[in-house]
């Protein structure tokens, strides 16, 4: 079954069951994202892929990575409201991901695109910078694709962290699939992949994360 929807003014055909993000990609519209991975189930944590959808005259904001396409749906991937969301989100995650006063990779690109002032909330960031935005790509890839469960989430709220389980390190030695997924570069630069010192469940239990 195919459905027809409108993305940024363009008529787009999509298969039923696809998400807006996938349909847009096929139609050549790139929606920015930080937690999406094509091999993983939609997760909806970064909210950078938020878009405006209009249905029966009612507009709302949804995460395009999880919202299924529908016949007649009108999608706007850029709008003043969407751009403002992306700008604020980048400003909010900038302080924890900064390396030497600069954000890196995809986040840097997005900061430029959306005019985010990465120093806006710097003086208000008083936690230890973890260099992790909890996009969970590492956790979910290890879980859903590799099946090793060597890295997981712990804690909740602002104390939520992703940590390695050293007892699983043997598998990591040869795998390292998560190294390339990390949008902030934390994993490759901070992990020794032997004991995961400073990054493990035991560090968490010792209250050091």
């Amino acid at each position: 079954m195919t459905v027809t929807l409108q993305i940024d003014g363009k008529e787009v055909k999509a298969r039923e069951g696809m998400t807006i993000l996938e349909a847009a990609k096929e139609a050549g519209v790139e929606i920015p994202k930080l937690c999406y991975h094509e091999k993983l189930k939609p997760y909806g944590a970064c909210r950078i892929c938020s878009v405006e959808v209009e249905r029966k005259g009612r507009a709302r904001i949804v995460a395009s990575c999880g919202y299924p396409v529908e016949q007649g749906l009108v999608v706007r991937t850029r709008s003043p409201r969407i751009d403002r969301i992306r700008k604020t989100l980048i400003e909010l995650i900038a302080p924890t991901t900064m390396v030497d006063g600069e954000v890196v990779g995809e986040i840097k690109k997005l900061a430029k695109e959306y005019g985010a002032n990465i120093h806006r909330f710097e003086s208000r960031f008083r936690a230890k910078p973890t260099r992790c935005i909890l996009c969970g790509q590492c956790v979910r890839y290890c879980d859903e694709v590799i099946g090793e469960h060597a890295i997981g989430f712990v804690g909740r709220g602002i104390e939520r962290r992703a940590v390695f389980f050293p007892e699983k390190a043997k598998a990591c030695l040869t795998c390292q699939a998560c190294f390339d997924l990390c949008p902030t570069g934390k994993i490759p630069s901070e992990t020794d992949f032997v004991v995961f010192d400073g990054f493990s469940i035991d560090d968490y239990l010792a209250g050091e994360l």
């Binding site: 944590a45 909010l92 995650i93 208000r124 960031f125 008083r126 909740r156 709220g157 602002i158």
Partner: peptide
């Protein structure tokens, strides 16, 4: 309250609350 009780999964809620808390405390 929400800083502690949020699940911490999505960025707007987690980082928004964290920053709001610091601003309001200030």
């Amino acid at each position: 309250f929400c800083c502690e009780e949020s699940c911490g999964k999505c960025i707007p809620c987690r980082e928004g609350l964290r920053t709001l808390r610091e601003i309001l405390t200030d």
